[in-house]
């Protein structure tokens, strides 16, 4: 995950890039087999322990997903970003707002 979180005048701009194939379940390999669906369905962001953003994805979110949102916060806020996918993989990363 690449997380950029920058504060300006009380507003924190958060940009998140995640490496994930986001397989839709509709893609075929060269020999015609369907690649099973496997995608991130939930992405949550907590700031200082409080949830500020919750995203739900279907298979039509692009590979290597990107989201950008903003919340009222401060430099030094601790963000915890967590995602979960349809095969119950998940990942959690932390970043401090600059």
């Amino acid at each position: 995950m690449r997380i950029r979180a920058q504060e300006n005048k009380g507003r924190v701009d958060v940009k998140i890039l995640i490496r994930h194939d986001m397989e839709s379940g509709l893609r075929k390999t060269e020999n015609g087999n369907l690649v099973p669906a496997w995608y991130i369905h939930t992405l949550k962001v907590e700031a200082q322990g409080t949830e500020v953003f919750n995203a739900q994805f279907g298979p039509a979110v692009s590979r290597d997903p990107f989201v950008n949102f903003r919340y009222q916060g401060a430099k030094g806020d601790k963000l915890i970003v967590t995602w979960m996918d349809t095969q119950n993989d998940s990942r959690r990363d932390e970043v401090i707002v600059s």
Binding site: R2, K15, L17, R19, D64, F66, N68
Partner: peptide, 12 residues
Amino acid sequence: SDSNPAELYIAA
């Protein structure tokens, strides 16, 4: 152009 996913490869 903002947030090119190539950034994921750069970090890795």
